[in-house]
Design a binder for these strands. Sequence first.
DNA 1: CACTTTCCTTGACTCGTTCAAGAGAAGCAG
DNA 2: CTGCTTCTCTTGAACGAGTCAAGGAAAGTG
Lengths: 158, 158
Amino acid sequence: MNGTKHEHDEDAAAALRQTSLRVTKQRVAVLDAVRDHPHADTETVIRSVRESLPAVSHQAVYDSLHTLTEVGLLRCIKPSGSVARYERRIGDNHHHLVCRSCSLIVDVDCTIGQAPCLTPSHDAGFVIDQAEVTFWGMCPDCTAAGAQLTGDDQFSAV
Amino acid sequence: MNGTKHEHDEDAAAALRQTSLRVTKQRVAVLDAVRDHPHADTETVIRSVRESLPAVSHQAVYDSLHTLTEVGLLRCIKPSGSVARYERRIGDNHHHLVCRSCSLIVDVDCTIGQAPCLTPSHDAGFVIDQAEVTFWGMCPDCTAAGAQLTGDDQFSAV
DNA sequence: CACTTTCCTTGACTCGTTCAAGAGAAGCAG
DNA sequence: CTGCTTCTCTTGAACGAGTCAAGGAAAGTG
């Protein structure tokens, strides 16, 4: 295992110093939590942060996630039917594969060429700045387990 | 103006009869409401339905939207930061352009070829059944008005 | 028309998220 | 190092889209 807790903290602190944000232990812990739990939801981040800082308020985590997303240190994704999830892989506009059964999210790189689907057939006069692609399906585990879609999944899916 | 209220009702009723669902005036009204308000949210559907059926409960509308989506008469979309929205254009897996400023949603047809982006660079073993593409940007009106993104928009956007 | 099954009404409730006020700490100037 | 200013965190209440549950109403069937 390379990458100690301390190195993570240093890395997170350095990232924070490059913004105009203050370096607080809460924010460092939130950045580390998201690094350790890819595509984590807020609840997971809160639990993870509390392992090192038992007294953090949920509001501090919400605030940190918002602020860090605003300055570009985190990216927020919200697949249909899911709560907000955060990731530290930013700046490459990669896309996501979401399991309809267990909500597992996996990163996928751009599909065709380097700017896939960035040109809709007509843009209706819009100034487009991002194309977000979400692939829906079943992850290997759920496929193997023969998982069936629940009514709710079907509803929120299509 | 072609397409009277009565014709719409007949059309909606016919669509319902092709499923195993009962034809109720609430469901007919919901179908008509979604036809009349493309990409309408639930609140809009409720208001629209109450123009002809003042006494419908919000629960009846929620139930109808769910059921109609399940049987494939409606499609539900939920862009990040937006509530659920419904549309009657189904079966062609078209995509959406969303204005970051006013939340206007516009349909766009498939982009490259007929099955755009349906093949991620690696599928991580997933069985993929749908690729959902959302284009984010600014609609013509907001661009002309020089609308700036609010902090909140920026947050939920990237 | 009577009966069965599905659907709608009513009203309470959940859960993720946000709001607001005041206490606390980060960073800077001296 | 010390005090000051400003930003950040804690506390606790509130919000809103959506859901749950029980009983009454209406659609479809024979």
